[in-house]
């Protein structure tokens, strides 16, 4: 009796529902839908133009003058140091003890140092070391950090724990101390500094990349790629890494000044660039004793380091604002 009642009610409900849908074929589809292309094409005309990373950067420079000035400054520094032999007014290594510790003059724009060498010329040559040390170890350490961060973030579990604990251990040491330790053990020289800086600073990159990957691997397009049969290695390379690029660019502009400063500190402490070759940090160190007599020869390299570091930071900030997906929309 109960079921009879229910059945009658069901019939009634079905009738009502059938009133809402027609279940025969596809005659319910509106006329326009049979030409879907037309409908979509209209909507298409309103779609925003493509903005590649290059175009985004262009528009950033247009609206952010500080970033533009910073970029020009950085490029300028790179150019004059690369072409130092052409630009430099004097030989940076020629000593002239009769001319020592002079202030700025027409002959020596930034004066001379303790041995009578031209400070400007030495700065141009020393900038090569500073910039090299700023850029190449950053590339090496970020490559290592990115690779390890990708693996740790994507695979998780034990591999993740091992890599991240290793990073924690590295981060627990003051990086300057660790770099000094490595430099001391391996002996002085540019190569040692490269290695020291590379080893010290991958951990930060690995952490950032890992956290990025943790969120990226949950994205539906990663799932979609898996569902069409893409292998895991390929997913990391083709679907996750490219989405980390904006973060990596920003990280790069922040790591470069960090390494320039570390190199300056190391040189200042006497374990960086070795005389007679020089770097900005070493120049500050060498001339600090004569600060009262010729302040320019100390201040010039110091201020140059400051300018370069600040320029990189401003550029990094501007790039982050423009490229960071979390700040978009």
């Amino acid at each position: 009796m109960n079921s009879k009642k229910l059945n009658r009610a069901a019939d009634l409900a079905a009738e009502k529902i059938a009133g809402g849908f027609s279940m025969e074929g596809t005659d319910w589809i509106p006329e326009g839908a049979t030409q879907p292309a037309k409908v979509e094409a209209e909507a298409e005309s309103e779609i925003a133009p493509d903005e590649t990373i290059g175009e985004q950067i262009k528009s950033m420079f247009k609206h952010n003058k500080l970033a533009l000035v910073s970029a020009i400054l950085i490029v300028l520094f790179i150019l004059v140091t690369v072409f130092a032999p052409i630009v430099a007014p004097h030989d940076p290594y020629v000593q002239d003890l009769t001319q020592r510790l002079q202030g700025p003059s027409a002959e020596h724009l930034l004066g001379t140092d303790n041995y009578g060498r031209d400070v400007l010329s030495r700065m141009l040559y020393g900038g090569r070391v500073s910039l090299l040390v700023g850029i190449f170890p950053t590339i090496i350490s970020m490559t290592i950090g990115t690779a390890l961060g990708l693996i740790a973030g994507f695979y998780g579990g034990k591999i993740d724990s091992i890599i991240m604990r290793l990073a924690d251990v590295l981060m627990a040491f003051p990086s300057l101390l660790l770099a000094m330790l490595i430099s001391y053990t391996l002996g002085n020289g540019l190569l040692t500094i490269f290695m020291a800086l590379s080893v010290v600073s991958w951990a930060g990159t690995a952490r950032v990349v890992r956290s990025e990957v943790l969120s990226l691997r949950e994205k539906e397009y990663v799932e979609a790629a898996t569902s069409i049969g893409v292998k895991r290695g390929t997913i990391i390379r083709r679907h996750i890494l490219p989405n980390c690029v904006p973060t990596l660019i920003v990280l790069f502009t922040m790591n470069v000044p960090g390494n320039i400063l570390t190199e300056s500190s190391l040189s200042f402490l006497g374990i960086g660039a070795q005389p007679p070759s020089t770097s900005w940090g070493l120049m500050v160190y060498e001339s600090k004793q004569y600060l009262q007599m010729t302040p320019v020869s100390t201040l010039a390299p110091g201020i140059t380091i400051l300018l370069l570091v600040v320029a990189f930071n401003f550029l990094g900030d501007a790039l982050r604002d423009k490229l960071d997906p979390s700040l978009k929309n």
Binding site: E220, Y221, E223, A224, S227, I228, P242, N243
Partner: peptide, 19 residues
């Protein structure tokens, strides 16, 4: 996957890789 069985996802906004 993708060859003999394929899948369509709910969110067309996020199921395509933006890059």
């Amino acid at each position: 996957r993708g060859n003999r069985i394929s899948m369509i996802f709910q969110e067309p906004m996020t199921a395509l890789n933006p890059v």
